[in-house]
Computed example of a mutant assay.
Amino acid sequence: MNSLVPLMIVAAASLAAGPASPPLPAAIENAEAVPVRTVYRVKQQGGGLGIFIDEAAVFYEIGKAPNTVWVLERRRRDQKMGLVSVRHEWVDGRTCPALAETIGKIARLPPVSMAGLDTTPKTAYSDSSDVTLMGPAAGGASSDFALRRDTMGPTARWWWDAQKALEPCWAPRQPYLNGAYSLRSRLSSAQDEVEVMRP
Rank of each mutant, 00 (worst) to 15 (best):
residue 178 N to G: 10
residue 188 S to T: 07
residue 161 D to R: 10
residue 86 V to Q: 10
residue 11 A to S: 07
residue 135 G to Y: 02
residue 19 P to T: 10
residue 58 V to S: 11
residue 42 V to F: 03
residue 165 A to V: 00
residue 144 D to L: 14
residue 28 I to H: 10
residue 150 D to P: 05
residue 153 G to N: 07
residue 184 R to A: 14
residue 133 L to E: 08
residue 156 A to N: 06
residue 109 L to V: 00
residue 123 T to I: 09
residue 137 A to D: 12
residue 103 I to E: 01
residue 55 E to S: 13
residue 75 R to P: 01
residue 149 R to H: 11
residue 181 Y to G: 09
residue 31 A to G: 06
residue 131 V to G: 08
residue 5 V to S: 07
residue 129 S to Q: 15
residue 71 V to N: 11
residue 134 M to P: 11
residue 88 H to F: 03
residue 15 L to V: 08
residue 196 V to L: 01
residue 7 L to M: 11
residue 155 T to N: 01
residue 101 E to C: 00
residue 75 R to H: 03
residue 154 P to Q: 09
residue 159 W to L: 04
residue 98 A to Q: 08
residue 113 S to E: 09
residue 76 R to C: 12
residue 151 T to N: 03
residue 100 A to F: 04
residue 20 A to K: 03
residue 175 P to Q: 11
residue 75 R to C: 00
residue 88 H to T: 05
residue 144 D to R: 14
residue 10 V to E: 12
residue 127 D to G: 12
residue 47 G to H: 05
residue 34 V to K: 15
residue 103 I to Q: 00
residue 23 P to G: 12
residue 85 S to M: 03
residue 105 K to Y: 02
residue 51 I to W: 08
residue 64 K to C: 13
residue 160 W to T: 10
residue 125 Y to H: 15
residue 147 L to D: 13
residue 61 E to I: 09
residue 41 R to N: 13
residue 74 R to D: 06
residue 17 A to K: 06
residue 186 R to V: 07
residue 113 S to I: 04
residue 108 R to D: 14
residue 156 A to T: 06
residue 64 K to P: 13
residue 131 V to F: 05
residue 184 R to T: 13
residue 108 R to C: 04
residue 91 V to D: 03
residue 50 G to K: 04
residue 95 T to A: 09
residue 112 V to M: 11
residue 178 N to Y: 01
residue 42 V to T: 09
residue 83 L to G: 10
residue 99 L to R: 01
residue 66 P to S: 03
residue 17 A to M: 06
residue 109 L to Q: 01
residue 76 R to W: 11
residue 143 S to Y: 13
residue 198 R to M: 10
residue 89 E to D: 14
residue 155 T to E: 02
residue 105 K to D: 09
residue 30 N to A: 13
residue 20 A to T: 08
residue 195 E to S: 11
residue 198 R to I: 06
residue 72 L to I: 08
residue 113 S to N: 05
residue 112 V to Q: 13
residue 17 A to T: 02
residue 169 C to A: 04
residue 61 E to G: 06
residue 58 V to A: 12
residue 124 A to H: 15
residue 159 W to F: 11
residue 166 L to S: 10
residue 133 L to A: 04
residue 142 S to T: 10
residue 72 L to H: 12
residue 138 A to T: 14
residue 179 G to M: 08
residue 158 W to D: 06
residue 54 D to G: 08
residue 194 V to A: 15
residue 120 T to D: 04
residue 172 P to M: 09
residue 20 A to E: 06
residue 53 I to K: 11
residue 41 R to Q: 15
residue 61 E to K: 04
residue 1 M to E: 13
residue 42 V to E: 13
residue 88 H to W: 03
residue 72 L to K: 12
residue 109 L to W: 00
residue 14 S to H: 10
residue 55 E to C: 04
residue 45 Q to K: 15
residue 46 G to A: 06
residue 161 D to G: 06
residue 189 S to P: 04
residue 192 D to M: 00
residue 169 C to I: 02
residue 25 P to R: 08
residue 5 V to W: 06
residue 112 V to I: 09
residue 119 T to N: 13
residue 52 F to T: 05
residue 115 A to G: 07
residue 90 W to S: 08
residue 4 L to P: 01
residue 103 I to Y: 00
residue 193 E to Q: 05
residue 70 W to I: 14
residue 69 V to T: 14
residue 73 E to H: 08
residue 31 A to T: 04
residue 28 I to T: 13
residue 198 R to N: 13
residue 54 D to E: 14
residue 155 T to Q: 01
residue 126 S to F: 12
